[in-house]
Every structure is written in C-alpha cells, then in structure tokens.
Amino acid sequence: MYLLNRQQRHVVNYSWMLFSLLIIAFLPFMLFGGLYFKSFLLLKTHTLKDLIFLHSWHPSRGEFGFYPFIVGSIWVTLLAILISTPICLLTAINVTQYAKKRFLRIMHPVIDILAGIPSVVYGVWGILVIVPFISRYLGPWFGVQSMGYSILAGAFVLSVMIIPFILNIMIEIFRTIPTELKEATLSLGATKWQMVKHVLLRKALPGIIASVGFGLARAFGETMAVLMVVGNVIKVPHSVFDPGYTLPALIANNYGEVLSIPQYDSALMFAALLLLAVSLFFNLLMHFFIARYNKY
C-alpha cells in the first residue's frame, strides 16, 4: 500500500532529484556571490588592477597588494606540476605497458596510502627532510644561500602530494586503451616503444591533460603542507630558493585574528575569491585543451 499513486510518486521523486541537481549546479555561483559580497568592502576603495598588481602589503596602512601571494602560489603550483607530471607519466606507462600485472596490484594500495596521508604529515616531512636538504645541499650546489624554507621546498612537498592523484588517473587512462589498438599498431611492425610514443601517448593525451589539470587544481588550493615549508615571507620571490607566501596560506594564517583592522577581513575574502577564480581559469583552460586534442 502506498500513500500516493505511481504518477504522484514519480512527480515527488523527480522534484527531489531536480532539487538536488539545482543545489549542486548553483553551489559555485553561491560561493562566488558570497565571496564577492564579503570582499566588497575592499573593492569599494581599491581597483582590481591595484589589488592584483601592487607589491606592497600593509593592511594597517590600507595597502593591499596581492601580487606576492599570487606569484608565490603560481610558482609553487607550476613547479610542483613540472616535477610530478613526468614522474607520473613514466610510472603509468611502465606499470600498464611494461611491468608484470602483479606489480600493478601492488602499486594500487601504495598509491591509495599516499593519497590518504594527511597534508600536515607531508608538511612535517618537508620540514624534516626537504628544507634541510635544500639549505645544506641543493642551495650550495647551485651556489645560492637559502634557508631551505622556499618556493622550491613547497613545490617538492606539493609534487609528492599530488603524485597519487595524477598517477591514479593516468594509470586508468592507459589501462582503458583497447588492446586491439595496440595489436593494430604492433602488427604494422612498430616496436613497443614506437607504439607507446606514437600511438598510446596520442590516444591518451586528452586524459593526460585532464589529470594534470586535476593535479593543478589540487596543488593550487593546498594549504597546510605548503604553508609549513614555503617560508611565509611577503615578498615577490626572485628565484626558487627564495621564500614565498601563497594565497591559501595567507587566509589560513590570518583569518580570525584581524578583526581590528578594517578591510582586512574583506581582503582575506578577496584572496579566497582570487583562489576560486584562478582554479576556474585552470579548469576552463584544461577543458579547452581536452576538446582540442580529443578529436582522435
């Protein structure tokens, strides 16, 4: 026995589904709207251009130049991607095309464990291993004085953190390439390496770009681990051995203790808005590339 007949139940179920869908669809807009509303106090007195391109950050004097944070964030993120992408790509190719199947079965739990480690732990590891490594060995080797807390340290830690995410997607992509395509390529007389280079990589390209985009988005928003090793000095970094400051770290370090300074609260909201905007930009860029290379 039902309270409603089939038709009515259909309507009720359908409206619930539609409601959930709408909530998800509007969530980003609500976030954007909320952050924009909250940062309005800052935007009233400063132009967008000044906020993004000015170097000076003195909240007590009312100077809010986000440039050092933006540059710091972008450097750390891009470097991390630059380090982790080739490693992931080579690993994924090896595991799916060359290594024994047993190896993949071992790799999967390892990757999952790496993905599950809390970012604070990565941060601690960065402080204990990466920071001294840079100040004692890598810096002097390049003839640079560095205290170790630097853009490079942030990038190293970050690259290790995003490897499991990128790698998982890449392995999946290479696994889903049909065996018949490989057979077709090999039957033309291609060697295994030629097959990988000319056919598999091209076939996988949209997926590879998507996985890098996913890593990029994660890296850009990562807060804790980077904050612990990047140095947190508000200055535009001139080399990777310089300390820097990232947008997420700015928010995490200062939110909650700044209510005495007018506009500071609003400035942090603006930082969040910037984060969201840049993530969105990366996202769109990836979609563009995927669409461009997906034609094969």
Binding site: E180, E183, A184, S187, L188, R202, Y296
Partner: peptide, 29 residues
C-alpha cells in the same frame, strides 16, 4: 609482423589523420 597485414574484427584506426594512418605504416616500413 610487418610481413603480415592484420585486419581485425572492428577497425581500430590509429589516433591520427586519415593520411597519417597510412603514412605511419609506410614510415615503419
């Protein structure tokens, strides 16, 4: 393998242009 052409159950064109699908085979040859 080069001494044997393979035609499989479903066609699997290489992820390239029509022209390059054949040019690639020629290059390998």
């Amino acid at each position: 393998r080069q001494s044997m052409g393979l035609l499989s159950q479903r066609p699997y064109p290489l992820p390239m242009t029509i022209y390059n699908n054949i040019a690639y085979a020629l290059k390998l040859r």
